[in-house]
Amino acid sequence: MLDTHARKLVQPSIEGTGRYLLRKGLTANGVTFIAFIIGTSTGLVYYLGHPVLAVILLWLSGFLDAVDGTMARLTKPSPFGTVMDVTFDRIVEISVILGVAFLHPDIMWALLLLSVSVIVSMTIFLTVGAVTEKQGMKSFYYQAGLAERTEGFILFSVMMLFPSILLWSTLLFFIVEVFTGLQRFLEAKRILS
């Protein structure tokens, strides 16, 4: 929801950073890879007992993830860049979930539910993007929903920074993902029927 509706507020800083990195000789795919390395370190950093640093790394990777897409649109988007971007985003999320799971094995069952809900919601999102003829500013149809990447990062941040409510924040994230999956499924039925 925030990615869709609030992007215009942060787009000037995203675009400015993208133009700067292009002038420095970086490519969109290069920035995608940098964001991936930073993002996948999040789970390990959290597990090693540095939750604030983990959250900073998560948000830095998310910012660079937005920058790389803008850089691609300013130059020449590549289909493989899209594959890298979507794949690396999921691996970053898996990193966070694994870091939390290894540090808090007592709530493994809730993290498993969260993982399943993310898989189902993303399956719907990616399938609709692949089969629909609609195009947006991205290289495929971007299906908005209650939980987009920013909401996920907010909930991951709450999970990592407030361990006393970890179970409840994980269950809230699960409910939000289930709702988003249902929302996307119903939209898919509407636009593809």
Rank of each mutant, 00 (worst) to 15 (best):
L2R: 02
L2Y: 07
T4A: 13
H5K: 11
A6Q: 05
K8I: 12
L9V: 12
E15K: 03
G16Y: 01
G18K: 01
G18M: 00
G25F: 06
A28E: 06
F36Y: 09
I38Q: 02
T40D: 10
V45D: 02
Y46D: 14
L48M: 15
H50V: 10
P51D: 04
A54P: 04
L58F: 06
W59N: 08
L60C: 11
L60E: 10
S61H: 04
G62T: 01
F63C: 05
L64N: 07
A66G: 12
A66L: 07
F80G: 06
D85F: 00
T87N: 02
D89L: 00
R90V: 11
R90Y: 07
E93D: 10
I97L: 12
A101I: 10
P105M: 11
W109H: 15
L111C: 04
L113Q: 08
L113G: 09
L113C: 09
L114S: 02
L114A: 04
S115L: 15
S117G: 04
V118G: 13
M122F: 15
M122Y: 15
T123A: 14
T123Y: 14
T123C: 15
F125D: 04
F125Y: 09
V128W: 01
G129Q: 01
K134I: 10
K134Y: 15
Q135I: 08
G136A: 09
K138P: 07
K138A: 13
F140G: 00
Y142G: 12
Q143I: 11
L146K: 11
E148A: 00
E151G: 01
E151S: 04
G152M: 03
L155P: 05
F156M: 02
V158K: 06
V158P: 04
V158L: 10
M159H: 09
M160R: 02
L161S: 01
F162H: 08
F162R: 07
P163G: 06
L166N: 09
L167M: 06
W168K: 05
L171E: 09
L172V: 05
L172R: 09
F173V: 08
V176H: 03
G181V: 05
Q183F: 03
R184N: 12
I191H: 07
